[in-house]
């Protein structure tokens, strides 16, 4: 498989799984959490690294996901005190955990290949160098398998729990009265977001994780009239942004991450202007029509 195709596949699948998670976060007004989790998981990686003694252990994955959950749980603890709002609570927790991770790395692991740059700016261009081998045979880039696995997990999650997630995001009280535990669904979702963030880190780096958890979901929110369509629209927008970004990066010889994040922003801008009902143009035309009628 040519390297460009491998890069493209990894980018599209990672973007799509981030978009699914991002949509779940957005409808609960929790997009900020994506930013928080994508930083605090570094602490999980560091702690797991100390325990495992290497960078190849699956412990790193689990540790990172666990700290993602801890971030959310600590934030909620603060909210329950009624002293801070939900957004500020996340804002208080995440720099603390992130700073702790940075201190641990500089103090005890400065000689290891574990500085913030490598962990935070995973490099898509290098993804084809990490190979997956089965019985000594090269079966493609490792990133393809992790991103495909994550995407499958994310899609499975929203398909199986579609009605439960829709209910709890739209009307939490009704979900509670109907017997769908909002707390359980909340933590399952957060676990999924953490896992996806950790997995995507490796392939595309945290800046792209944040961009793809925020932008495609926001785009979809502008165009979709139902929850199901929002999810498909988010995945479509994410895949399109990834492909446009990669093409642009190859043509202009710039970084993949930068081009993809820019593409995701531009796709959102296009939707903001041209979305049929909530777009700026649509709103302007509606206002003008209403103005004419009242005259």
């Amino acid at each position: 498989m040519p390297a460009e195709l491998e890069i493209g596949l990894i980018a599209v699948m990672t973007a799509a799984s981030c978009a699914v998670c991002g949509s779940l976060l957005l409808v609960r007004g929790m997009t900020m959490t994506a930013d928080a989790i994508s930083h605090t998981i570094l602490l999980g990686i560091v702690l797991a690294y100390f325990m495992a003694g290497g960078l190849d252990s699956p412990l790193l994955f689990l540790g990172a996901a666990a700290v993602g959950l801890v971030t959310v749980a600590l934030g909620e603890l603060l909210v329950k005190s009624r002293l801070v709002s939900e957004d500020s609570a996340v804002g208080v927790v995440f720099p603390l955990l992130f700073a702790l991770a940075v201190i641990l790395i500089t103090r005890y692991a400065s000689s290891v290949h574990l500085d913030t740059d490598t962990v935070l700016l995973g490099e898509l261009a290098f993804a084809p160098f990490e190979r997956m081998t089965l019985f000594g045979m090269d079966i493609g880039a490792k990133g393809i398998y992790t991103s495909a696995g994550l995407l499958t997990l994310d899609l499975l999650f929203v398909c199986v729990l579609f009605k439960e997630l829709k209910t709890v995001s739209f009307d939490r009280t009704a979900a509670l009265v109907m017997g769908f535990s909002p707390a359980l669904l909340h933590y399952l979702t957060m676990a999924l977001v953490s896992l996806t963030a950790v997995g995507s880190f490796d392939a595309v780096g945290s800046v792209l994780v944040v961009a793809f958890m925020a932008a495609p979901a926001a785009t979809a929110y502008l165009v979709a009239e139902s929850f199901g369509r929002m999810l498909t629209a988010a995945v479509t927008a994410a895949a399109a942004s990834a492909i446009i970004g990669i093409r642009a990066a190859l043509a202009l010889d710039v970084s993949f991450a930068g081009a993809m994040a820019t593409a995701a922003g531009l796709v959102f801008l296009a939707a903001l202007i041209a979305a049929p009902k909530r777009g700026l143009v649509g709103a302007y035309l509606r206002r003008r029509r209403a103005g004419k009628r009242s005259r």
Binding site: F170, A174, G179, A220
Partner: peptide
Amino acid sequence: RDFPISAYEVALMGRYA
């Protein structure tokens, strides 16, 4: 009110219980 959900979907939610 901004949640992407149709009137029909809200009504259908009643069956979920």
